[in-house]
Amino acid sequence: MSYDTVKAHLNLNALLRNLENLYTLDQETASLIQSWDMAVRFTVLGGLSARLGFQNGTCTYQSPVQDPADVVLCFLSGRHLNAMFEERSNPIPLKGFKHLGFLKNEFPKVTKRLEYFLKPTPALLEDEAYVRVNTALSLYIAVYSVCELLRVDPVGRQIGPQMPAGTLQLSVLPDGPHAYIRYDGRGGATAGIGVAETPSAVLTFESCQTANALFNGKLDGFGAIALGNIKMRGLIPLVENTNVIFDRIPVYLQ
């Protein structure tokens, strides 16, 4: 897969997907989508597609798409989709022209909110509530990205088949966020938010601050493990290989 194709997978299935989590973490986002009754489909020519459905104050993400959408936005390529994420291009609306106002005025408010939480500044990281949301979203993006990278990243596709089957639980103590990756032992994986039953390996961060520092590249992970700030147990190869895959994320998402 080309760089742009992999990046498009991450932008859509790991990054934008987090709108379904953001409204549970951020009251402002919850308020914004409270009255929305709308489904938006993103389609890249060649196969990649996803659907964001807003209804009854919730947001659900679907990929591959099964349900119809009110608005269909088409992209000629992965590069075209990526350009939209970088605000250098616009999608081609194929359906839902009457909702263009929503797309132009309302929808960007939540994507801007997502962007706000994913672009921390030193000042923002002084805010405990911000740190919590940033940490949760970073964790969720990471686990969703693993699934995509195993499928489409050249390195991820080499690593995946070497990994044993099993579930890796990632938890920030004392009360979350939590996420998990379920490896199928054949090179694929699915990810979820929350606590998995009977994990094969567990990676815990002693605090939100520790997790946040790691996710934002401000913490030496090996040192933190040795000092007990990050703990792991169980099938350590799951953790080690996941860490290698995590390191592929910045190749595509800055």
Binding site: I225, A226, G228, I236
Partner: peptide
């Protein structure tokens, strides 16, 4: 050991690297 490791991480990548790294020790403490 812990105090020495805190000094080590300031001047040595990983503090202690390779197969001597404490990372596979579970629990590390």
């Amino acid at each position: 050991s812990t105090a020495l490791f805190k000094r080590a991480v300031k001047v040595i990548p990983c503090g202690v690297y390779g197969h001597f790294s404490p990372a596979p020790y579970v629990p590390v403490e």
